[in-house]
């Protein structure tokens, strides 16, 4: 479903991605973790080309993302993205946040889009908030709406960039629950997150990134109980001490 081969990325002199190879198959859930500044966000953003790459190839659903002939907008319509800071549209109601792209990009009818939105809101437990505005919601609720907004495009893949790290601790659970349900429903997912419980429960494998390289790739139980590389061990020690 997603394949990265030898991906490099420079920001001026900074070598942010250094030969990344990665494969995510249909229905798999992959958790990406690593120290701050290691390139996780850059990595996940290259998959839907919010970030261009300097070298290498990225394939999503059989299409070469980095080929200039590929229709980027059509591709992005099939790849959901959930941001650390939600990025809901503040001037639109919850319902309009969700229906905007199905209506404008997929040319779905308004009634159908609204019905879909209500179903999705129900799925993330926020059906009663459909007429609220983002600023009237808690962080956890906003992130659940953001997930519903991504799902409204009926994507083949969902990408998450630290979806819970901007949340107060008591709201992390509700968002992870939505993501867990999504994973169990068979969605292909790639999540940058440091939530070890989540990774243990639903991840098919964990990818550890450091200094722009995939240092280790293992099943969650192996990675957490018996990391192979010194940098991974150090990272896990630090994570646990928090």
């Amino acid at each position: 479903m997603i394949r990265l081969t030898n991906v490099h990325k420079w920001f001026k002199d900074l070598h942010v991605l250094n030969g990344v190879n990665l494969n995510v198959h249909q229905g798999e859930v992959v958790v990406v973790c690593g120290p701050s500044g290691s390139g996780k966000s850059t990595l996940i953003r290259t998959i839907n080309q919010l970030e261009t790459i300097s070298e290498g190839e990225i394939w999503v659903d059989g299409k070469n993302v980095t080929d200039p002939k590929t229709d980027l907008n059509a591709l992005r319509a099939e790849v959901g993205f959930v941001f650390q800071h939600f990025n809901l549209y503040p001037h639109l109601s919850v319902l309009d946040n969700i229906t905007l792209s199905p209506i404008r990009v997929k040319k779905m009818g308004k009634a159908a889009a609204e019905q879909l939105a209500v179903e999705l809101l129900d799925r993330v437990g926020l059906a009663h908030k459909k007429d609220a505005f983002p600023a009237q919601l808690s962080g956890g609720q906003q992130q659940r709406v953001a997930i519903a907004r991504g799902l409204a495009m009926q994507p083949k893949v969902m990408l998450f960039d630290e979806p819970t790290s901007a949340l107060d601790p008591e709201m992390i659970g509700e968002v992870l629950q939505v993501m867990r349900d999504l994973a169990k429903s068979g969605m292909t997912m790639m999540c940058v997150t440091h939530e070890m419980g989540f990774a243990r429960e639903v991840a098919d494998y964990v990818v550890f990134v450091d200094q722009g390289q995939v240092v280790e790739q293992a099943k969650p139980e192996e990675f957490f109980s018996n990391p192979q590389h010194e940098r991974a061990k150090q990272f896990l020690r630090q994570l646990r001490s928090h």
């Binding site: 907008n73 992005r76 319509a77 941001f83 404008r104 990009v105």
Partner: peptide
């Protein structure tokens, strides 16, 4: 993040401006 979020769902640049 606003432009990012809009581009991530497949909006064209004019749509990003017009709707977001």
């Amino acid at each position: 993040g606003q432009a990012n979020a809009a581009m991530a769902v497949g909006f064209t640049l004019p749509q990003v401006y017009r709707h977001v």
